[in-house]
Amino acid sequence: MSADSGGERARPVRCLIAKVGLDGHDRGAHVIARAFRDAGFEVVYSGLHRAPEEIVQAAVQEDVDVLGLSILSGAHNTLVPKVIEGLEEYGARSDTLLIVGGIIPEADRDGLRDMGVAAVFGPGTPMQETIDFVRENVRPRPDDPV
């Protein structure tokens, strides 16, 4: 729901912060999860070494508004499309704001956005910028007031 729409959400923004693939570095994921929690979002953290299918299952089961993928391994061009395909299979793609954070080369960012990633956040992105982006771009839910 856009911040300038004037409406309030019926429930807090629900986020899944997920570590996809063999990437074992999760400090950034913990930092963003805490920042989101402190901003009033409900946050679920996937833990390390999750397969794209596991992340999709968790996103669907938790009925999240936002899926944040944290990737430092360089496998983003392989793993992100698998997550997107899984969300599409469950009909959850249009309801889920997909953001990616981590070490993503500038040359790959447009390709990820073309696939359906709403935003790519690199190291050093201010937490408030990410929080504001989510608040401004999260999709309204059917139970949100108009």
Rank of each mutant, 00 (worst) to 15 (best):
L79V: 07
L22Y: 12
D38H: 12
E89H: 14
Y90G: 13
V134P: 01
P142G: 13
I55P: 03
P12I: 10
V43W: 07
G101E: 08
E136N: 14
E62R: 09
R139Q: 13
R109G: 06
A39D: 06
G74L: 12
K82F: 07
G40A: 12
A58M: 14
L79E: 08
D95W: 04
Q61F: 00
P145R: 11
P140C: 11
P12L: 02
H76P: 02
V138Y: 08
T96H: 04
V134L: 07
L69E: 05
A118N: 04
G124Q: 05
T78H: 10
G6L: 05
V83G: 02
K82W: 00
G6Q: 12
F36T: 02
D110N: 14
V80R: 04
D26E: 14
V138I: 10
A75G: 00
R141I: 07
L98G: 08
A118I: 02
I99N: 01
Q61I: 04
A18I: 04
G86H: 12
R14L: 03
R93W: 09
V44N: 11
E88C: 11
A3P: 13
M1I: 10
G24N: 13
G6C: 04
S70W: 12
G21L: 10
R37I: 00
Y90N: 15
I55K: 03
L69W: 06
S94I: 09
L48Q: 12
T96C: 07
G68S: 13
R135N: 07
V117A: 05
D110G: 05
G101L: 05
V117S: 04
S46V: 04
G21M: 09
V31Q: 08
M127Y: 13
T130W: 04
A33C: 00
V83C: 14
S5Y: 13
Y90A: 14
L72E: 01
R34P: 06
V134W: 08
I17F: 07
C15M: 13
D144G: 02
V60H: 10
V31R: 07
V117C: 03
G86E: 05
E54K: 13
N137F: 06
G21K: 11
F121P: 01
V13A: 06
R93G: 09
E8Y: 15
V117D: 01
D38W: 06
D108C: 06
S46M: 10
F133E: 06
I55T: 00
H25S: 09
K19M: 08
N137K: 10
G111H: 09
V134M: 05
S73V: 10
M1E: 11
V66K: 07
G102T: 04
L22F: 11
L97H: 11
I17A: 09
R135I: 06
R135S: 11
L22I: 09
V120Y: 01
D63N: 13
E8G: 14
M1K: 12
L98C: 11
D26L: 06
G86I: 01
D65F: 01
F41D: 03
V44L: 13
R135C: 02
V80K: 12
G7T: 14
G68D: 00
D114G: 02
F121V: 09
I84S: 11
G91H: 07
F133C: 08
D110T: 14
D4N: 09
A39C: 08
V13F: 02
A58G: 01
